[in-house]
Protein backbone atom coordinates (compact mmCIF):
# COMPACT_ATOMS: atom_id res chain seq x y z
CA UNK A 1 0.00 0.00 0.00
CA UNK A 2 2.89 2.35 0.70
CA UNK A 3 4.05 1.97 -2.87
CA UNK A 4 0.62 2.93 -4.11
CA UNK A 5 0.49 5.95 -1.85
CA UNK A 6 3.87 7.16 -3.07
CA UNK A 7 2.93 6.70 -6.72
CA UNK A 8 -0.36 8.47 -6.24
CA UNK A 9 1.20 11.43 -4.46
CA UNK A 10 3.97 11.76 -7.03
CA UNK A 11 1.60 11.66 -9.94
CA UNK A 12 -0.61 14.32 -8.47
CA UNK A 13 2.23 16.74 -8.03
CA UNK A 14 3.27 16.71 -11.65
CA UNK A 15 1.85 19.44 -13.89
CA UNK A 16 -0.23 17.57 -16.32
CA UNK A 17 -2.32 18.19 -19.33
CA UNK A 18 -5.52 16.82 -20.68
CA UNK A 19 -5.94 14.33 -23.42
CA UNK A 20 -8.11 14.44 -26.48
CA UNK A 21 -11.69 14.36 -25.34
CA UNK A 22 -12.41 11.76 -27.96
CA UNK A 23 -10.55 9.26 -25.75
CA UNK A 24 -13.58 9.07 -23.61
CA UNK A 25 -15.75 7.78 -26.41
CA UNK A 26 -13.82 4.61 -27.20
CA UNK A 27 -14.57 1.10 -26.02
CA UNK A 28 -18.02 -0.37 -25.70
CA UNK A 29 -17.36 -1.79 -22.27
CA UNK A 30 -15.57 1.31 -21.02
CA UNK A 31 -18.37 3.57 -22.17
CA UNK A 32 -20.99 1.19 -20.83
CA UNK A 33 -19.41 1.70 -17.43
CA UNK A 34 -19.26 5.48 -17.98
CA UNK A 35 -15.48 5.43 -18.38
CA UNK A 36 -14.88 3.91 -14.93
CA UNK A 37 -12.43 1.54 -16.50
CA UNK A 38 -9.02 2.35 -15.07
CA UNK A 39 -8.94 -0.59 -12.70
CA UNK A 40 -10.91 -2.91 -14.99
CA UNK A 41 -9.46 -2.41 -18.48
CA UNK A 42 -9.74 -6.07 -19.38
CA UNK A 43 -10.02 -5.69 -23.12
CA UNK A 44 -7.95 -4.13 -25.89
CA UNK A 45 -9.13 -0.63 -25.04
CA UNK A 46 -6.83 -0.86 -22.02
CA UNK A 47 -4.37 0.85 -24.38
CA UNK A 48 -6.38 4.02 -23.89
CA UNK A 49 -7.65 3.60 -20.36
CA UNK A 50 -4.73 1.99 -18.54
CA UNK A 51 -1.83 0.47 -20.46
CA UNK A 52 -0.74 -1.43 -17.36
CA UNK A 53 -3.89 -3.50 -17.63
CA UNK A 54 -3.05 -4.61 -21.13
CA UNK A 55 -1.42 -7.83 -20.02
CA UNK A 56 -4.44 -9.15 -18.18
CA UNK A 57 -5.51 -11.41 -21.02
CA UNK A 58 -3.26 -14.03 -22.50
CA UNK A 59 -4.64 -13.97 -26.00
CA UNK A 60 -3.72 -11.65 -28.80
CA UNK A 61 -6.58 -9.29 -29.59
CA UNK A 62 -7.79 -7.08 -32.39
CA UNK A 63 -10.49 -4.54 -31.64
CA UNK A 64 -12.54 -2.24 -33.85
CA UNK A 65 -15.26 0.21 -32.90
CA UNK A 66 -17.31 2.89 -34.55
CA UNK A 67 -19.66 5.59 -33.29
CA UNK A 68 -21.68 8.40 -34.78
CA UNK A 69 -21.17 10.79 -31.91
CA UNK A 70 -24.47 11.81 -30.33
CA UNK A 71 -26.11 11.35 -33.69
CA UNK A 72 -24.52 14.51 -35.06
CA UNK A 73 -24.50 14.45 -38.81
CA UNK A 74 -21.03 13.79 -40.22
CA UNK A 75 -19.38 13.55 -36.80
CA UNK A 76 -18.00 10.09 -36.31
CA UNK A 77 -15.11 8.22 -34.86
CA UNK A 78 -13.55 4.82 -35.26
CA UNK A 79 -10.66 3.10 -33.60
CA UNK A 80 -8.54 0.06 -34.35
CA UNK A 81 -6.58 -1.40 -31.50
CA UNK A 82 -4.57 -4.57 -31.11
CA UNK A 83 -2.70 -6.34 -28.36
CA UNK A 84 0.19 -8.72 -28.99
CA UNK A 85 2.06 -10.83 -26.50
CA UNK A 86 5.78 -10.88 -27.23
CA UNK A 87 8.99 -12.05 -25.63
CA UNK A 88 9.70 -8.68 -24.12
CA UNK A 89 6.17 -8.20 -22.77
CA UNK A 90 2.76 -7.14 -23.93
CA UNK A 91 2.64 -4.65 -26.77
CA UNK A 92 -0.36 -2.65 -27.88
CA UNK A 93 -0.93 -0.74 -31.08
CA UNK A 94 -3.73 1.68 -31.65
CA UNK A 95 -5.22 4.11 -34.12
CA UNK A 96 -8.12 6.45 -33.41
CA UNK A 97 -9.74 8.66 -36.02
CA UNK A 98 -12.28 11.41 -35.40
CA UNK A 99 -13.83 13.09 -38.41
CA UNK A 100 -16.19 16.00 -38.74
CA UNK A 101 -17.61 16.85 -42.15
CA UNK A 102 -14.37 15.99 -43.92
CA UNK A 103 -12.78 19.25 -42.88
CA UNK A 104 -11.74 18.47 -39.33
CA UNK A 105 -9.75 15.43 -38.36
CA UNK A 106 -8.19 14.24 -35.12
CA UNK A 107 -5.94 11.23 -35.35
CA UNK A 108 -4.07 9.37 -32.68
CA UNK A 109 -1.43 6.68 -33.08
CA UNK A 110 -0.39 4.73 -30.01
CA UNK A 111 2.26 2.19 -29.07
CA UNK A 112 1.85 0.65 -25.64
CA UNK A 113 4.03 -1.55 -23.55
CA UNK A 114 2.85 -3.37 -20.42
CA UNK A 115 5.01 -5.27 -17.95
CA UNK A 116 4.47 -7.34 -14.83
CA UNK A 117 6.85 -5.86 -12.25
CA UNK A 118 6.11 -8.39 -9.57
CA UNK A 119 3.25 -10.54 -8.56
CA UNK A 120 0.02 -8.57 -8.81
CA UNK A 121 1.66 -5.28 -9.80
CA UNK A 122 1.73 -4.13 -13.40
CA UNK A 123 2.94 -1.02 -15.11
CA UNK A 124 2.33 0.25 -18.62
CA UNK A 125 3.43 3.10 -20.80
CA UNK A 126 1.98 4.69 -23.93
CA UNK A 127 3.75 6.63 -26.61
CA UNK A 128 1.19 8.64 -28.57
CA UNK A 129 1.34 10.71 -31.70
CA UNK A 130 -1.41 13.32 -32.10
CA UNK A 131 -2.36 14.83 -35.38
CA UNK A 132 -5.05 17.49 -35.80
CA UNK A 133 -5.89 18.78 -39.26
CA UNK A 134 -8.34 21.34 -40.53
CA UNK A 135 -8.89 21.96 -44.20
CA UNK A 136 -11.49 24.12 -45.86
CA UNK A 137 -12.64 27.66 -46.45
CA UNK A 138 -13.47 29.23 -43.10
CA UNK A 139 -13.51 32.90 -43.89
CA UNK A 140 -10.63 34.59 -42.16
CA UNK A 141 -8.85 31.40 -41.15
CA UNK A 142 -6.14 29.72 -43.19
CA UNK A 143 -7.50 27.08 -45.49
CA UNK A 144 -5.18 24.47 -44.02
CA UNK A 145 -4.01 24.16 -40.48
CA UNK A 146 -2.49 21.27 -38.63
CA UNK A 147 -0.74 20.53 -35.39
CA UNK A 148 1.11 17.45 -34.29
CA UNK A 149 2.46 16.45 -30.92
CA UNK A 150 3.75 13.47 -29.00
CA UNK A 151 2.34 12.41 -25.66
CA UNK A 152 3.31 9.89 -23.01
CA UNK A 153 0.99 8.09 -20.59
CA UNK A 154 1.96 6.01 -17.60
CA UNK A 155 -0.30 3.56 -15.82
CA UNK A 156 -0.19 1.14 -12.92
CA UNK A 157 -2.49 -1.67 -11.84
CA UNK A 158 -2.28 -3.26 -8.44
CA UNK A 159 -4.22 -6.28 -7.29
CA UNK A 160 -4.77 -5.69 -3.61
CA UNK A 161 -6.71 -8.87 -3.02
CA UNK A 162 -8.93 -11.29 -4.84
CA UNK A 163 -11.77 -8.85 -4.77
CA UNK A 164 -10.04 -5.47 -5.04
CA UNK A 165 -7.90 -3.89 -7.76
CA UNK A 166 -6.57 -0.36 -7.93
CA UNK A 167 -5.42 1.43 -11.05
CA UNK A 168 -3.74 4.78 -11.52
CA UNK A 169 -2.99 6.27 -14.88
CA UNK A 170 -1.52 9.62 -15.78
CA UNK A 171 -1.99 11.04 -19.23
CA UNK A 172 0.39 13.22 -21.20
CA UNK A 173 3.26 13.41 -18.75
CA UNK A 174 5.34 15.40 -21.22
CA UNK A 175 2.74 18.22 -21.48
CA UNK A 176 2.18 18.37 -25.23
CA UNK A 177 0.98 21.89 -25.91
CA UNK A 178 -1.67 20.86 -28.37
CA UNK A 179 -3.65 19.69 -25.40
CA UNK A 180 -2.74 22.34 -22.92
CA UNK A 181 -5.31 23.17 -20.33
CA UNK A 182 -4.12 25.08 -17.35
CA UNK A 183 -4.62 23.46 -14.01
CA UNK A 184 -5.67 20.10 -15.29
CA UNK A 185 -4.24 17.11 -13.48
CA UNK A 186 -5.36 14.27 -15.68
CA UNK A 187 -4.51 11.52 -13.29
CA UNK A 188 -7.22 8.97 -12.99
CA UNK A 189 -7.58 6.80 -9.98
CA UNK A 190 -9.89 3.86 -10.11
CA UNK A 191 -10.78 0.75 -8.21
CA UNK A 192 -12.48 -2.48 -9.11
CA UNK A 193 -14.41 -4.28 -6.44
CA UNK A 194 -16.41 -7.48 -6.13
CA UNK A 195 -19.05 -6.06 -3.81
CA UNK A 196 -20.91 -9.25 -3.07
CA UNK A 197 -17.84 -10.84 -1.56
CA UNK A 198 -17.80 -8.03 0.96
CA UNK A 199 -21.45 -8.60 1.68
CA UNK A 200 -20.85 -12.29 2.00
CA UNK A 201 -19.24 -11.71 5.37
CA UNK A 202 -22.56 -10.55 6.73
CA UNK A 203 -25.15 -12.24 4.56
CA UNK A 204 -25.10 -15.77 3.42
CA UNK A 205 -25.17 -15.44 -0.36
CA UNK A 206 -25.24 -17.99 -3.12
CA UNK A 207 -21.57 -18.62 -3.94
CA UNK A 208 -22.32 -18.76 -7.64
CA UNK A 209 -23.18 -15.09 -7.87
CA UNK A 210 -20.36 -13.67 -5.78
CA UNK A 211 -18.10 -12.83 -8.71
CA UNK A 212 -20.88 -11.98 -11.14
CA UNK A 213 -21.11 -8.35 -10.05
CA UNK A 214 -18.20 -5.97 -10.51
CA UNK A 215 -18.34 -2.47 -9.14
CA UNK A 216 -15.85 0.12 -10.35
CA UNK A 217 -15.29 3.81 -9.90
CA UNK A 218 -12.89 6.35 -11.35
CA UNK A 219 -11.88 9.70 -9.91
CA UNK A 220 -10.57 12.44 -12.11
CA UNK A 221 -9.84 15.97 -11.08
CA UNK A 222 -9.66 19.01 -13.32
CA UNK A 223 -9.46 22.66 -12.39
CA UNK A 224 -13.07 23.39 -13.06
CA UNK A 225 -14.71 20.26 -11.85
CA UNK A 226 -14.15 16.93 -10.23
CA UNK A 227 -15.40 13.96 -12.12
CA UNK A 228 -16.50 10.76 -10.55
CA UNK A 229 -17.79 7.96 -12.68
CA UNK A 230 -19.13 4.67 -11.49
CA UNK A 231 -19.93 1.50 -13.36
CA UNK A 232 -21.44 -1.84 -12.56
CA UNK A 233 -20.93 -4.99 -14.58
CA UNK A 234 -23.15 -8.00 -14.37
CA UNK A 235 -21.79 -11.16 -15.91
CA UNK A 236 -24.89 -13.04 -16.94
CA UNK A 237 -22.99 -16.07 -18.14
CA UNK A 238 -19.82 -16.94 -19.99
CA UNK A 239 -21.18 -15.45 -23.20
CA UNK A 240 -23.04 -12.40 -22.10
CA UNK A 241 -22.45 -9.48 -19.78
CA UNK A 242 -24.13 -6.12 -19.31
CA UNK A 243 -22.90 -2.86 -17.82
CA UNK A 244 -24.37 0.36 -16.57
CA UNK A 245 -22.68 3.55 -15.44
CA UNK A 246 -23.15 7.17 -14.51
CA UNK A 247 -21.11 10.27 -13.86
CA UNK A 248 -23.60 11.30 -11.16
CA UNK A 249 -24.36 14.49 -13.09
CA UNK A 250 -25.52 14.40 -16.65
CA UNK A 251 -24.80 11.05 -18.15
CA UNK A 252 -26.11 7.52 -17.87
CA UNK A 253 -24.57 4.74 -19.84
CA UNK A 254 -25.38 1.20 -20.81
CA UNK A 255 -23.41 -1.48 -22.61
CA UNK A 256 -23.39 -5.14 -23.36
CA UNK A 257 -21.02 -7.72 -24.76
CA UNK A 258 -21.90 -10.99 -26.38
CA UNK A 259 -19.16 -13.53 -26.93
CA UNK A 260 -19.51 -16.04 -29.69
CA UNK A 261 -16.51 -18.32 -29.80
CA UNK A 262 -13.52 -16.07 -30.33
CA UNK A 263 -15.46 -12.92 -31.21
CA UNK A 264 -16.84 -10.34 -28.78
CA UNK A 265 -19.64 -8.14 -30.11
CA UNK A 266 -20.08 -5.00 -28.09
CA UNK A 267 -22.60 -2.21 -27.99
CA UNK A 268 -22.92 0.80 -25.73
CA UNK A 269 -24.77 4.05 -25.54
CA UNK A 270 -24.54 7.27 -23.59
CA UNK A 271 -27.77 8.88 -22.53
CA UNK A 272 -27.72 12.54 -21.59
CA UNK A 273 -31.22 13.90 -20.99
CA UNK A 274 -30.14 17.30 -22.25
CA UNK A 275 -28.94 16.07 -25.61
CA UNK A 276 -31.28 15.13 -28.38
CA UNK A 277 -29.65 11.88 -29.40
CA UNK A 278 -27.79 9.14 -27.58
CA UNK A 279 -24.25 8.28 -28.40
CA UNK A 280 -24.22 4.78 -29.86
CA UNK A 281 -21.11 2.70 -30.34
CA UNK A 282 -20.60 -0.74 -31.79
CA UNK A 283 -17.47 -2.84 -31.49
CA UNK A 284 -15.96 -6.14 -32.50
CA UNK A 285 -13.06 -7.80 -30.75
CA UNK A 286 -11.30 -10.82 -32.16
CA UNK A 287 -9.34 -13.20 -29.95
CA UNK A 288 -6.48 -14.75 -31.90
Amino acid sequence: MKILKIIFILLNYINLYASFKSYELIGSKAIGMCGAFTAVADDTTAILYNPAALAQQNKNLIYFDYSNIFGIKDLNQFSILSKVNSIIGTIGLGFVNLNFKNYYKEQLWIISYAHLIFQKFRIGINLKYFDREIEGDFGELPTYKFSQKIGIDFGTLFQISDFLKIGIVTFNLNKPEILKEEGIAPTKFGFKLLPLILLDKYVNLNKNILDKFILTSDFFKSYYKNLISTGLEYIVNNYWSVYIGTDWKEKFTFGTTISIESINFGYSFVYNPSILNNNNLVSIELKL
Partner: peptide, 10 residues
Protein backbone atom coordinates in the same frame (compact mmCIF):
# COMPACT_ATOMS: atom_id res chain seq x y z
CA UNK B 1 -29.04 26.86 -26.75
CA UNK B 2 -26.59 24.61 -24.94
CA UNK B 3 -23.04 23.73 -25.82
CA UNK B 4 -21.63 20.32 -24.90
CA UNK B 5 -18.19 18.89 -25.31
CA UNK B 6 -17.80 15.83 -27.44
CA UNK B 7 -18.33 13.47 -24.52
CA UNK B 8 -21.64 15.05 -23.60
CA UNK B 9 -20.58 17.27 -20.70
CA UNK B 10 -22.35 20.62 -20.56
Amino acid sequence: IKIFDITGNL
